[in-house]
Amino acid sequence: MMAYMNPGPHYSVNALALSGPSVDLMHQAVPYPSAPRKQRRERTTFTRSQLEELEALFAKTQYPDVYAREEVALKINLPESRVQVWFKNRRAKCRQQRQQQKQQQQPPGGQAKARPAKRKAGTSPRPSTDVCPDPLGISDSYSPPLPGPSGSPTTAVATVSIWSPASESPLPEAQRAGLVASGPSLTSAPYAMTYAPASAFCSSPSAYGSPSSYFSGLDPYLSPMVPQLGGPALSPLSGPSVGPSLAQSPTSLSGQSYGAYSPVDSLEFKDPTGTWKFTYNPMDPLDYKDQSAWKFQIL
């Protein structure tokens, strides 16, 4: 009977010793046993002879290597770790002494450095960015050149030099007046198309007034536009458009034309069986010896 009264063996659950049927240790109110408190290391007290050895090595170098620390530790009968900690504390003490010396050398008012006064946003004049500046400075420094007289040679050079070769001289006033084509001369031969040399188009003023001019072949195509416009036809070669000034309004060009419109200028042929003959000019830059190549039959 006494065997049943004795408590059973101890069981360990999660490293906790349980005594038989008792489960009081598993209750929430019972805390787990805490780790033992780490003991504080005792402070090391250095003797005068030990301090002399350490100070002598510190005077040589503030960062001794492990071999120098072990050698000193053997002399003063201390572990190497204590020597390492002593050098660490000695360097910190040396830095603190240097900072105190710097503070003593500075004057009393030198510690508080005078800061520059901050400028207020409204006091300083700042350039306004509302208006974009002129990058080319046209509004201040540029002045347009004065327009020359209508009959000045410089204007003629600016007008005619675009179309004339570089080897030719500017046309005088008398020749510029001949550039304007007359109405009857352009409409006299509506079906004849003559190819003149390129030099005649640039230099010869008579080429624009003769039936064999460069633009005589364009007349049949330009004249039928007159009834559609409801007024006189516009002429690209009329009046002052080739003269001194090219800047004319469309209203000033509306009254200039080749001449009176005639039914002869239409595109319809009077004789459907007729042929169109292209007159060959020996001055043509295209060297075609066979003139029969310039004739064709309209079917």
Results as ranks from 00 to 15, higher is better:
L186N: 05
D265S: 15
T251L: 07
P227H: 10
K295V: 15
S223Y: 12
M26E: 01
G230V: 15
P31V: 14
P190T: 09
P64I: 14
Y191V: 02
P108M: 11
P184A: 06
V226K: 05
L78W: 13
Q96L: 06
I162L: 01
M2P: 01
R43I: 14
P282F: 14
M283Q: 03
R115L: 02
R115V: 02
P145Q: 02
S128W: 07
A56I: 07
V83T: 13
V83G: 13
R115N: 03
C132P: 07
A174M: 09
S252T: 06
Q28K: 11
N14Q: 11
P205T: 07
Q100V: 09
F46T: 15
D24H: 14
C202K: 03
N6L: 15
L54I: 15
A121V: 07
A293D: 02
K289R: 06
G274V: 07
K113A: 01
K118I: 01
S252D: 01
D140G: 02
S182E: 06
W294V: 03
Q101M: 03
S262E: 02
Q28N: 03
S22E: 00
I76A: 13
S213T: 10
F269Y: 01
S34W: 11
R91T: 13
N77Q: 05
S49N: 05
G239M: 06
P232L: 14
P165Y: 15
P107M: 06
F58D: 15
A56L: 04
D219G: 15
S254P: 02
L218K: 06
V85E: 12
S204K: 10
P147M: 03
C132W: 06
A293G: 12
L57C: 10
P165D: 01
V242D: 02
L229F: 03
P170Q: 11
A177W: 12
P227S: 07
N77R: 06
L51H: 13
P9N: 00
Q101C: 05
L186Q: 00
G259T: 09
S49R: 08
A92D: 15
Y261V: 01
R91L: 15
L16N: 00
V131E: 04
G183Y: 10
S22I: 15
D271K: 12
H27D: 04
G151L: 09
T154V: 10
P250T: 04
V23I: 13
S235F: 13
P33H: 08
A17K: 06
L253Y: 08
G151V: 02
S241Y: 13
S262M: 14
Q84D: 15
A260N: 03
V242F: 09
P165L: 10
P133H: 06
T251K: 07
T44H: 09
S216R: 07
R119W: 01
S150E: 06
A260K: 09
P33Y: 15
T44F: 12
T123W: 04
Q291N: 03
P236E: 02
A68K: 10
M225Y: 07
S241N: 06
D265I: 15
W163H: 00
T251C: 08
L78E: 13
L51R: 07
D140S: 03
R69M: 12
G148W: 10
V226Y: 10
S22R: 08
D290Y: 15
Q28D: 04
A114T: 02
T154H: 04
S249T: 01
P236L: 15
